[in-house]
Design a protein around this nucleic acid. Sequence first.
DNA 1: AATGAAATGATATGTTGTAACGTCGGGCGG
DNA 2: CCGCCCGACGTTACAACATATCATTTCATT
Lengths: 154, 154
Amino acid sequence: MATHAHHHHEHHGHDLADAAKSALTAAGEQWTDMRADIFAVLATFDKPASAYDIADLVSQKRGKRVAPNSVYRILDLFVSNNLASRVESANAYLANAHPGCLHDCIFLICDTCGSATHIDDDSLTGNVRKAAEAAGFHAVRPVVEVRGTCADCD
Amino acid sequence: MATHAHHHHEHHGHDLADAAKSALTAAGEQWTDMRADIFAVLATFDKPASAYDIADLVSQKRGKRVAPNSVYRILDLFVSNNLASRVESANAYLANAHPGCLHDCIFLICDTCGSATHIDDDSLTGNVRKAAEAAGFHAVRPVVEVRGTCADCD
DNA sequence: AATGAAATGATATGTTGTAACGTCGGGCGG
DNA sequence: CCGCCCGACGTTACAACATATCATTTCATT
């Protein structure tokens, strides 16, 4: 079973945006309007959002075209600072519900409805890292994702 | 430590192509020239190969353009029949060294040299599946990949 | 205001993946 | 042998994802 010593808030809505802002500014980065808008849009998704999805919605919201380019830049920044994660098997991104708190994330992606849920299991991802190190590999970023069907779609 | 009860041959070269052919025909699929060529090319890579890489090389080999389209079709077939795996975090494919033998694979991908090594640890991937099921998720395909640096590049 | 650094915009292009439909050839019933 | 069907492959077009390059804006600092 999963055991991790610390406690998480799961932030939501405005609260989440605040936490994101705090985490980013704490890292010495700016919290600009553009970044706020992109984070806000990303946070509305319950499934992984592609950079182009986000670009479209932010463009609407601003009444002015925002190029994918800009979105990618900011998503990369978010990922670097744990405000968001990239879901590799979906070429898409998810807002992190507890920004500033570092984990190796595990994602469960439903192939039917597309929703993704996030679980933490540090012992499990720790074992993944250990297995890699045992093979003489220096693990930097474990990618643990599970494709399947969620409880609702079963 | 990893434990798995059965034993693997690690096939190589012609031996590997033979094993692939056997596995595919055993599944009721045909082993055509095109499929043989694509498998052969894929097997020459020690790092994940993109469909386009493969298309280029097979085109050379045949002296006639082979469209990515065709390559994807055949790669999908290979993946379905465990002759190859898709490396999600690299958008690329690897030949499976022991075709016909079903595992949840773990890949270690070096961000420096691009090489990928494959390890099996059924207890580990089993735990990933268990963690997913515990969350009410029906796991079909675990994706466990580790980005980092290999022993040679350290 | 002038400067310089960071953020964003604009444009182009590269890479990855799929859809739709046409053609070829081998097996099979007639 | 003939016509038919079906699986494999070809061709073209396009959709989706991602990055490169350079210009412009913004804004804190001087």
